[in-house]
Design a protein around this nucleic acid. Structure first.
Lengths: 138, 138
DNA sequence: TATTGACTTGGACTAGGTCCATCGTAGGAT
DNA sequence: ATCCTACGATGGACCTAGTCCAAGTCAATA
């Protein structure tokens, strides 16, 4: 039984067939799926599941801090279940492939107070861009 | 006469009333407008300008490297005319307001070769997130 | 000032996502 | 085991941001 489902149940999440399937899809593949890809995979196991439910469930998982939303560009948001190890992303400028990376240093500390303009800064998101090995050759 | 318009003309850009207005809107305000905001401001000066033209022109300015697209999250893209001074962005998690910031340090150097997975990494984009002074109070 | 090919237009179309009234059901109470 | 009911699911309408296209317009060159 999955850690994710256990954690959710312990937090009083009402367990339904739909929620289970969505959580299992995310937990199973450690890639970064779009909402539509999650829907497609969930539909295989539970054909009647609706798009609204997938969006609702993804939104709840994000609020609970169990998955992260990754907006790599103007395209569809992707959902990242690997939220318990803080990390950043490396995106191929050509094909859009994503890898998790762990840069050194503390970028939050690199932003002096004089550059914060009164904001309560709470996080930083870094996206490295470049060509992946496959696209680099062609 | 604006630097931006001069640069564009020198590069053989065909100058039309529509393109001039869009370029001037971007050049005039050093904030980060959405395409719809650009359209609204352009419409004041040139009421018949169409949405498609604004999108076309913004796209061309981006390809020419004269403005940058900033995709802060799932919302509308914003257009940043301040492309000649490298900088990162600070975004309000609540209202989407953006400020340019200049963090210390070299984030590219913080990504060791072992974390590059064979990618030819060429740039890094950092987005600081938090609440702006206005949203922080409410 | 005539020509012409690049530019503009507006309206239809698409992707991605949200909203809502109604129906179904998980899980506690009996 | 069954009943209740509040929480969750449904699907279809709706929305925003953006793209596409055929037809009309016009800036720049000759």
């Amino acid at each position: 039984m999955s850690d994710l489902l256990d954690r959710l149940r312990r937090r009083g999440w009402r367990m339904t067939a739909q929620r289970r399937v969505v959580a299992e899809v995310l937990d199973g593949e450690h890639v970064h799926l779009t909402a539509d890809e999650v829907l497609a995979r969930a539909t295989v196991r539970l054909p009647e599941i609706s798009r609204a439910t997938v969006y609702n469930t993804l939104g709840e998982l994000v609020s609970l801090g169990e998955v992260a939303e990754v907006a790599t560009d103007g395209r569809a948001k992707r959902y990242d279940p690997n939220v318990h190890r803080p990390h950043q992303h490396l995106v191929c400028s050509n094909c859009g492939a994503i890898r998790d990376v762990h840069p050194a240093g503390d970028p939050l500390a690199d932003l002096p107070a004089s550059e914060r303009f009164g904001f309560a800064v709470s996080e930083v998101e870094m996206t490295y861009r470049g060509l992946c090995p496959d696209c680099h050759q062609a």
